[in-house]
Design a protein around this nucleic acid. Sequence first.
DNA 1: TGCTTGACGCGCT
DNA 2: AAGCGCGCCAAGC
Length: 97
Amino acid sequence: MDEAAHERIRAAVAAIPAGTTSTYGAVAAEAGLPGRARLVGRVLREDGHDLPWHRVLRADGTCAPHVAQEQAARLRAEGILVEGGRLPKAFRSRREP
DNA sequence: TGCTTGACGCGCT
DNA sequence: AAGCGCGCCAAGC
């Protein structure tokens, strides 16, 4: 495995401002691993327990199937309303064109 | 050693 | 709008 990349991914997730969200692809790209979105998911599964993983959504703004409930609840706590398991575009402030 | 799986992304139909 | 397939790569079996 790639421990350096692993750490950069954690850093990228930790750097997501509270009240905003990002995506797996964006986090991967910011960690210097473009196209490795899946790797981000792996890392969050293994080491995401101390990170704001709930701020990380899929590229289309939907929550990850495994944690959708938990994530939606946490996002609400951050002031982000999730409708139908989907996040309003307006909240996607990180790495969006 | 080699195949399958998976917190994903993106283009095409 | 919704679904399907392909690419990426580390882990698990």
